[in-house]
Amino acid sequence: MTSTPIHDASPAFGLLLDVDGPIASPVTRTVAIDSIARDLAGMANRGIPVVFNTGRSDAFIAEQVVPRLREFGLLPGTPVFTISEKGAVWAAVEPDGLGEVSIDEELALPPAFGADVAELIRERFADTMFFDHTKRAMVSAEMRVGVGSEEYWAAQKEFDAAIPALIERHGLTGVRIDPTIISTDIESDRLGKDLGARRALELLAARGVEPRSWYTMGDSRTDYAMADWLHGQGRRVTHVDVRPADGVPETDYTVLSHDDEVHDAAGAHFLTRWAADVA
């Protein structure tokens, strides 16, 4: 591995990556596969932009992702960023943590609403889920580690059904309820992986970096929005779906999936392939 990062204004490709599923295990909520961190750090050190485009908080990236990248030799000054909470929060990623964290306050839900959701969880759903206190703009409830999926999904349906009344009580408009296999996000309907993609290009442009093509990766249908946006902007893009059981839509760009593996095991496969191309 090089001792200083390679600075390439026009790298062969950039990576725009969902975190839960492709990078972090949805079971352990950690970067559990060593090759993922190894390949991401290696590609970043060689000038490949790595942008996490996630619903996770910046705190999750700092606590679960950055230490793994540092462990495998991420160098200072590489083109690595996190775009968290589906575009509401963003920061540069360095080996020792995150740079200055930026927040789009216009997209943040009121703290009083979040407090009511936290109270709802404490009163009725504490056995199956917890309130994510690290979110700055969204309001999120997440499945407790160790709870079975079927048990959580049953509770999640009841939780999701209780949220519209709270939204109405606070007089909120333009708010979306977005359930996933391990969480429910309550968020501005202006957030999304397409907004994250736009912010990614802005952050790289500020450093004078313009990848010649893109790989995007996700585990749900909503993750296709980042590839859709890039394609709509005239960028060459290939999307990797690490959980294609949800159904692969018709697209005007290439979609890849693994024949046998899903989630982070599939993500690891493609990252190793791309890292070999760079090396």
Rank of each mutant, 00 (worst) to 15 (best):
residue 7 H to S: 13
residue 26 P to K: 04
residue 13 F to D: 01
residue 10 S to M: 11
residue 32 A to L: 13
residue 31 V to L: 13
residue 16 L to C: 07
residue 16 L to H: 01
residue 18 D to P: 07
residue 24 A to S: 14
residue 26 P to W: 03
residue 19 V to R: 00
residue 13 F to W: 04
residue 30 T to W: 01
residue 27 V to S: 10
residue 34 D to Q: 14
residue 25 S to A: 05
residue 12 A to V: 11
residue 26 P to I: 10
residue 7 H to G: 04
residue 11 P to M: 08
residue 6 I to H: 09
residue 35 S to M: 05
residue 23 I to Y: 03
residue 32 A to G: 02
residue 32 A to R: 13
residue 6 I to L: 14
residue 13 F to S: 02
residue 4 T to V: 15
residue 33 I to Y: 00
residue 16 L to Q: 04
residue 15 L to P: 05
residue 34 D to G: 08
residue 10 S to W: 04
residue 9 A to T: 14
residue 28 T to K: 09
residue 13 F to T: 04
residue 18 D to L: 06
residue 14 G to L: 04
residue 19 V to F: 04
residue 11 P to S: 08
residue 33 I to N: 11
residue 20 D to M: 08
residue 11 P to I: 01
residue 34 D to T: 13
residue 12 A to D: 13
residue 5 P to R: 06
residue 30 T to K: 11
residue 33 I to R: 12
residue 24 A to N: 03
residue 23 I to W: 02
residue 4 T to W: 08
residue 21 G to Y: 00
residue 15 L to C: 08
residue 13 F to I: 03
residue 35 S to I: 11
residue 17 L to T: 02
residue 19 V to K: 00
residue 8 D to P: 03
residue 31 V to P: 01
residue 7 H to E: 12
residue 34 D to K: 14
residue 20 D to I: 06
residue 10 S to D: 11
residue 30 T to V: 08
residue 29 R to H: 15
residue 11 P to R: 01
residue 28 T to H: 09
residue 24 A to Y: 00
residue 9 A to P: 07
residue 23 I to R: 05
residue 11 P to T: 04
residue 6 I to F: 04
residue 8 D to M: 06
residue 8 D to S: 12
residue 17 L to N: 02
residue 27 V to K: 07
residue 21 G to V: 03
residue 11 P to A: 07
residue 17 L to S: 03
residue 6 I to N: 06
residue 35 S to L: 11
residue 17 L to A: 06
residue 12 A to M: 12
residue 31 V to H: 00
residue 6 I to W: 00
residue 33 I to W: 00
residue 21 G to P: 05
residue 5 P to Y: 06
residue 28 T to I: 04
residue 21 G to Q: 02
residue 30 T to G: 02
residue 9 A to D: 12
residue 27 V to T: 14
residue 28 T to A: 09
residue 10 S to H: 15
residue 35 S to Y: 02
residue 16 L to P: 08
residue 25 S to C: 11
residue 9 A to C: 10
residue 19 V to G: 01
residue 7 H to L: 14
residue 12 A to G: 09
residue 25 S to L: 06
residue 17 L to V: 06
residue 32 A to W: 03
residue 35 S to R: 15
residue 11 P to Y: 01
residue 19 V to T: 13
residue 20 D to P: 10
residue 11 P to F: 00
residue 19 V to C: 10
residue 4 T to G: 03
residue 12 A to I: 06
residue 10 S to I: 04
residue 30 T to P: 00
residue 22 P to C: 10
residue 30 T to H: 11
residue 10 S to K: 14
residue 19 V to S: 01
residue 9 A to I: 09
residue 24 A to P: 06
residue 27 V to C: 01
residue 4 T to R: 13
residue 19 V to N: 06
residue 15 L to K: 03
residue 4 T to A: 14
residue 6 I to C: 09
residue 4 T to K: 14
residue 9 A to F: 03
residue 17 L to I: 09
residue 18 D to W: 04
residue 26 P to F: 05
residue 29 R to M: 12
residue 29 R to Q: 15
residue 20 D to V: 06
residue 34 D to C: 10
residue 4 T to Q: 14
residue 24 A to M: 11
residue 28 T to S: 15
residue 19 V to E: 00
residue 31 V to D: 00
residue 15 L to S: 05
residue 6 I to S: 11
residue 34 D to N: 15
residue 5 P to S: 07
residue 34 D to F: 08
residue 9 A to S: 15
residue 22 P to T: 09
residue 7 H to Y: 13
residue 5 P to A: 08
residue 7 H to I: 14
residue 32 A to M: 10
residue 34 D to A: 15
residue 33 I to E: 09
residue 20 D to Y: 01
